[in-house]
Structures are given as C-alpha cells and as structure tokens.
Computed example of a mutant assay.
Amino acid sequence: MTLSSKQFILPDLLSGCPIRGGVNPHYEEGAAESRAWINSFNVFTDRKRAFFVLGCNELLVSHVNVLFVFDEISDDQSAKDAFATGNIFLNAMQDPNWDDGSLFARMTKEFRTRFLRLSGTRATARFLKHWETYCACVITEAELRERGEILDVDAFIALRRENSAVRLCFGLIEYAFGTNLPEEVFEDIVFLDIYWAAVDLDIYSYDMEQSKGISGNNIVEVLMANRKMTLQEASDHIGEYCAELMERFMTAQNHLPSWGACVDSEVARFIQGLGCWIKGNLDWSFKTQRYFGTKYLEIKETLCVTLRPREEPEEFNIHSDLE
C-alpha cells in the first residue's frame, strides 16, 4: 500500500490480544442513565456534546463520565482556566461541605456520594489520591500546551500515566468488584509491573488529538519531536512497545507472591479487571467515533488512518458555562 504524507498504518494489537473481553450485561441501562445524568447539567456546547455522545464513553467506563467531562473541558482551556476547573473538580471530590454553586461542583459531589456508598476505605484513599494527582497533571498538560512545549519521552510517560485518568478508572475496578486491597500489594514490584503495563497501553488517540490541536500530549508527537521519527516510524515503534507491554502483563502474573488466600483472591479479581480494561479499550476504539470518526469500521479493517484537518478550538468559559 502506498501511503501519502497524511496517512499511517496503526499497529494491530486487537487481533493478537490474548485477553477475553466482554460487555457488562447492564451496559445499555447504565449507559442511558449515565448519559442522561451528564446531559442534565448542560455543560457542553452543541459540538462538544455531539463529540461526547458519538464517543460512547459509557461503553468504556460508564461510571466515570464525569472524568470525560473534565477532560473535554480542559482540552480547550488555558492553564489559568484549567486550574480553575481542576480546583472545582478536586475540592468537590475531597470535601463534602465544599460548594461554589457551580454545575461542575454539583456533578462531582453527586458522583462522590454514589462512589463512597460502596468503596472500601483503602480503595477510597487511593482513589482520592489519584484524583488529586490527575487534576494537577491535567493542569500541567494545559500549561505545556499553552507554551507549545513537548516533553521528552520519559517525562511524557510519567505525565500521561496521571493525566489520562486511567488510574482513576482502575480505582473503579475495586469499586465494581468490592475489593479493598492493602497498600503492600501496590508496593510489590511484580504487581506494579502488571499494573503499569495496563496503564501504558494507550495507542489509538493520535489522529483525534492532532485534529483538536492537542497532540503534544500524545506519544506519537513526542517520538517524532524527540527521536526524529516519521509518523509511520513512531506508530510502528509504539506497536512494538505495546506488544511488549501485553507480554509483560500476561507473564508477570505467573510470578506474583502470595498475601494469603483472601487477599490473593482480591488481587486476582483486580488483575482480571485490568485485563478487561485492556481488551475493552481496544474494542471500544473501533466501536465508536471518538478516535476515527465515521470511518472507524473501515479503519478497523485496513488499519490505515488519513489524518483529519485541524479543527477550530471552541471558547469555553468556566464561569459562564458551569455556573
């Protein structure tokens, strides 16, 4: 296949993924309720709302649509405005008595109330810690975007691990399975090898992000800027790296220590949830329009992506739109 300068071939991880996936049997009902809940706050412009709906975010993580809201809003904001949004998000999540009267605060507080009904104490402490780090790193992302700065590879990976919100989504695995893992599990090097392998498997968002002008927060752009790779070379490199991560995720499970039967059972359920995330993320990428627009089914077959033209950014004012 002869490619133009605006085309590249995606790495094919889906066909070689050894993990079985599936969709929650309550997805349809839960997705409708989650979407209706988000829409009730009317926080999006019409274009943002259309993009949000077509992305079928509920299919990936129906309980955390609020994270996608913050992600979408902050993508169009300056560092100052992202800081203001992040503070609302963080304060409303951490303090049940804090309220600035904004819609975003009310949305977050409603989520917090539902989450705390079932989450264990240790799982909750980890989730709130990751929430704070997530907000800080989304603000850092906005600062970098404002300066037009692209990080080196190692610094990017460290930032992306936090501002992608994947660790928060992994916190919901404990919520969903009713686990409450002790901290010593998260300090074990073998467990962390499995955990970080799952976090770092993020490969298909480049076209969407470059079209929105936010590709500085994407590993493809980072590799092209730092290692002088072409677009296709960067895509190929990422595919090889992700295949290594997949292998690490699978093989490291054979070397986990034992923490006792009860904890071992919870660890097994949590890792099962990580596997569902990996496979589900790959499936979701080709079942919605979030990454590839209306051609997502065609791209699933050919793996050939033609870069979309740059979109005009939308103005978003935290004070006028969220209060």
Rank of each mutant, 00 (worst) to 15 (best):
S5V: 08
F186N: 07
E301Q: 15
Y206T: 01
R227K: 15
P25T: 02
G55A: 06
Q94H: 14
L116K: 01
A155H: 13
L118P: 03
S205C: 08
S78A: 07
F104M: 10
E323R: 07
T251E: 05
N65F: 02
G16E: 08
R147F: 04
R145D: 08
D154A: 13
F170C: 00
D321K: 07
Y204C: 04
C242L: 06
E183A: 05
A234D: 10
S205Y: 01
I150L: 01
Q232I: 05
T230E: 07
E184K: 13
S40W: 08
F186T: 06
I139S: 11
M229R: 05
W98Y: 15
T230A: 05
I38S: 14
N218V: 02
D154Y: 04
Y175G: 04
V61N: 11
E247I: 04
Y204A: 04
S119I: 08
I318G: 04
L168D: 05
L322F: 03
E314W: 00
A84F: 01
G273R: 05
V220L: 05
A197K: 04
D100T: 05
R248L: 14
D321S: 09
A176F: 14
N24A: 07
I203V: 15
L159N: 15
A79C: 11
N91V: 01
D207Q: 05
E266S: 14
D207W: 02
G30P: 14
W131N: 02
F316V: 10
R122W: 00
I271D: 12
T140R: 14
C17V: 02
P11D: 08
T121L: 02
S215L: 00
A261F: 03
D81Q: 12
L245K: 14
S205G: 09
